[in-house]
Design a protein around this nucleic acid. Structure first.
Lengths: 333, 333
DNA sequence: CTGAAAGCGCTTACAG
DNA sequence: CTGAAAGCGCTTACAG
């Protein structure tokens, strides 16, 4: 067998004594073909390891069989594991559907890299995430009429998205802390501009409401994204006598850990600590920090299949994935 | 002006009253064209925002204008910032040359995702890194005759690579520590299978040789990749009375930090600590840890341009990038 | 159910 | 220096 010969449809047609159209139809399964000829073609294909030229196919169909993934330029500072898992889920799901993934990195302002992909028609659709998708990116894609899916939530009914069940998860974690009689909790987080932080705060509040316990919102601090700001926030809440500190994400929590350590404040003895998002840093911290873990890989897979549904004209709906875990560790003992 | 009309070469030819071949030549600059007609075409193109259909161009030239980037499935655990910077350098350089980047994730064993890219002819060449490129990946690519570039070093003369000047950098850092009269240093690292660790060790040794100071190799521990192993290694070297601990990478160093903290051993008072690779965790650690910083983004750019050189048949040579910084922090004060 | 033919949007020998 | 024509490897109305 000519192992390294690259077959084209024309070769198959010749060898089988049929037309290229018939070969094409046999492969795609479109149109009417007899089971018999189809089988002959399929058999030939698999025994000769024929691979269609995706580029030619694409040109004929005005498709690329490529998906674009827009990554924030600073994803490794934010939550490396999240993006890694997302990526691997996306790549897997894409491959299963015979698509491949192109990347494009942006700070959310400079659109040139994304623009490339759409303007050069290198992709059929795009996956963006909340961290990149400022108003600008979203607006750009809508205007250019590029199908896209958002990882994270959106109030815009035209936008397809997949998201974690942040609110439910945060409600449950908070509820558990309340059950442990931790009552006076500070809530510290990043920018309120991010929808995800809104969801987390909602979940946090709901746990209190459900139990009829009053919340002290003077213990809430947002826009905390630096050692200076965390110092400022924690100093205040500690002086106010909190018994628990809940950080809205792992980045903030790492800052908090640093501050508490510097000041010699012991966790969990003097104050309990939890994060509404997990990371290995929190897992291996001393003491390990209680947190929430979401299935980022599933999120990626889901975003990918949703985008494919959109592209192939199948029924498509935004979805909230149910899966999460509350991981109780020593920091809230 | 028809802003959203998508022009093709045929349209331009018609509007300008010339043939499509002439338009094509004007754009590519190949063959003989008069300056005058060329200018007319180029002017038309820029004023009408014409974008060539890369897919059609590719089909005609048997090219894709895509590069594949193989990422290790666990890159976020290893060194997220490194890969992020690499990626952004690669994406930038690719874009400047009108290429785009496809990703493929692998654990180094399962080649299916990489195989996809080459077998479906989705990319013109591939960038791999030492962490993914086990023997299998490299062998596969060579066999399939796919041009590729390695980030990291290789003894194989057929392999193009770009690497940091690990040896020089490690020699310099070690030399500085020796100058600070830190003499009895332990060297702790990951797998000796990785060429990079060999280079680092060489650099470390060279610094001693250069100063004629004897080295105690019983203080060297490799294959350290877990809390248990770090505990074992550090316990021994501390008992042996070292005055400095040099970790071969940031991952190992984070483990070391954890162990020292747990045992209440103070850095730098009781023992000095340094890492041969930087990370934000080390930078923000308390105390901040002395380490080496390389320009990962430059490495990415360099890998990309090298691959492009190979693809376009230009003279190509593997290169070692000179740039690095020794960052002295409190841990070696 | 099958085939001949045109088309996807470019490039590139070849001839002039 | 320029153009007509064939080709890249597929798909898909259209006719039979």
């Amino acid at each position: 067998m000519g192992e390294n010969r690259i077959y084209k449809i024309e070769d198959i047609a010749r060898e089988l004594g049929i037309s290229t159209s018939t070969v094409s139809r046999s492969i795609s399964g479109k149109g009417r073909i007899s089971q018999e000829t189809r089988k002959r073609v399929l058999d030939f294909i698999s025994s000769h390891d024929y691979r269609p030229n995706v580029q030619a196919k694409g040109l004929a169909q005005s498709k690329t069989y490529n998906l674009g993934l827009v990554l924030p330029l600073d994803f490794s500072e934010k939550s490396p594991a999240f993006f890694k898992d997302c990526m691997s889920g996306i790549c897997e799901a894409a491959a299963e559907n015979n698509y491949d993934v192109m990347i494009s990195m942006t700070d959310g302002q400079n659109l040139s890299q994304i623009s490339r992909l759409v303007v050069n028609r290198k992709v059929d659709g795009i996956i963006i995430s909340r961290s990149t998708a400022g108003w600008r990116v979203e607006h750009f894609l809508k205007e250019k009429n590029v199908p896209f899916v958002l990882i994270g939530s959106s109030p815009d009914p035209d936008v397809f998205f997949v998201d974690n069940s942040n609110r439910e998860a945060c409600r449950e974690l908070t509820d558990i802390l309340l059950m442990k009689s931790i009552r006076r909790m500070a809530l510290i987080g990043g920018s309120e501009m991010h929808r995800v932080n809104e969801d987390r705060k909602q979940g946090f509040l709901e746990a209190y409401y459900k139990r009829g316990i009053p919340v002290d919102q003077t213990l809430f601090f947002t826009e905390v994204d630096s050692p200076v700001k965390i110092a400022n926030a924690l100093e205040k809440v500690l002086r106010a006598g909190v018994d628990g500190i809940v950080c809205m994400d792992d980045f903030t929590c790492v800052l908090a850990v640093g501050y508490l350590r510097e000041k010699g404040i012991r966790v969990p003895q003097q104050v309990r600590l939890a994060s509404l998002y997990d990371s290995t840093q929190l897992e291996y911290n001393i003491p390990p920090v209680t947190s929430l873990r979401f299935e980022a890989k599933e999120l990626g897979r889901s975003a990918c299949t949703l985008l494919l549904d959109v592209l192939e004209g199948r029924a498509a709906r935004s979805r909230i994935l149910p899966g999460y875990q509350v991981i109780l560790r020593e920091s809230t003992k």
